[in-house]
Design a protein around this nucleic acid. Structure first.
Lengths: 220, 220
DNA sequence: TGTTGTGAATCTCTTCACAGCT
DNA sequence: AGCTGTGAAGAGATTCACAACA
């Protein structure tokens, strides 16, 4: 469907949707692009540009109908048949992510966990079973899992990624601090915690040159 | 010191350093830019361009001396006096992050935790004490904390951010799924887990149009 | 009047390509 | 022979600015 969408547009659509969900919850019916811009971290022009990929909605009188716009984003981002996700590596972080994502998006559900430690296998956490890593291919096929979250130590991450690819998984969310090599047909997004913290540490000391969305609020 | 450095250059320097640490550990003495490019996800030209900010140095014969380059990046990214970090919100994710960051970088140490739940207060986890959220300002001053990791629920995040700013914290790593409003002098980096997963889900279904660093390895 | 949708301009980041060095 | 460092070109993303519209 999409001719050519950038990763950042998809990222922002996800944020818009979250904002819109909250607004809907608060009883707001209509929003203007500049209001959406305020609630996220972008300009009004950027919001309108991003919404173009949806084929659009929106009128100059009331702006965008919140409920309609949410459905439009849902239709664009979500797979109608849903997508199932595995967490591989049931340590502190893996458990925290299972808790975090549990029940958050109906079309994107954590369905299984995997670990190499026999003590962790067969437990059921947040309604999903932990399988031995060796049964990955089989379980992925049976449960129709298309996405994996990798939370194993760096040293094991590449081997795990290879297994995922072999099992037919086409999307990886990688928390291991290492660059994964995968075939072009598999999409990887890295969440690099160390890098994120080091970035904050650096700019906390060099705040001057960051124009973190200028027209922003107060000043203490 | 930096005239104007971009966030992505800082992010990549952090990744180069991690790669170099590993190489040093493996006994590698010298690297060329194209080898560093392989180990991360960038081009050789990008690596060389990024390293320009260090002032430094590398020679056409052997490339870069690994140990020297690490020290150069250390000197650029790290505060010589070190920086102390607090984790606010000691739930699953907060605990996982305390474990993850424990002892990872000497110049960037998790020093305190904060939570509003009295049951969690005064415990000591990974060598650092959990304080009540009300004592934030005091503890931050006493322990000289400059950075906070926010892992509280979305509904509390803005209030927590405000307290952090008041307490003098100038860098925030935010895991709450909400856009924080802070003064321009405070730097915020968001780790948006939901967005990251939704991005993976989307591109896993639309792999075609992503040229995820083309010249990459195999093809199944 | 105040907003949307969007072509064009601008700005920012990445890649090219090559002189200079070893 | 093959690399580094970097000015200049190129690609890509964002913002401007305005016609169309309610």
């Amino acid at each position: 469907m999409p001719g050519r969408v950038t990763q950042q547009t998809i990222a922002r659509l996800s944020q818009y949707r979250r904002l819109l969900d909250r607004l809907l919850h608060e009883g707001v019916r209509h929003v203007f692009s500049h209001q959406m811009a305020e609630g996220t971290d972008v300009t009004a022009a950027q919001v309108r540009r991003d919404l173009m990929v949806l084929g659009h909605t929106g009128n100059p009188r009331h702006g965008y109908n919140v409920a309609v716009l949410i459905r439009a984003i849902d239709g664009y981002l979500d797979a109608s048949e849903g997508q199932r996700v595995a967490v591989i590596g049931i340590g502190n972080l893996g458990l925290a992510l299972m808790a975090f994502f549990a029940g958050r998006r109906p079309k994107l559900s954590i369905t299984a966990g995997f670990d190499s430690d026999p003590n962790k296998v067969n437990r059921v956490i947040h309604g999903c079973r932990i399988y031995p890593i060796d049964s990955l291919a089989q379980a992925v096929a049976e449960l129709d899992i298309g996405i994996a979250i990798i939370t194993v130590p760096a040293g094991e991450a590449q081997a795990v990624a290879d297994k995922c690819v072999d099992a037919g998984i086409r999307g990886l969310l990688n928390f291991a601090p290492i660059h994964l090599r995968v075939p072009k047909a598999c999409y990887v997004s890295d969440v690099d915690l160390t890098m994120s913290l080091e970035k904050v540490a650096f700019f906390a000391r060099h705040m001057v040159e960051v124009n973190n969305a200028e027209g922003e609020e107060d000043d203490t």
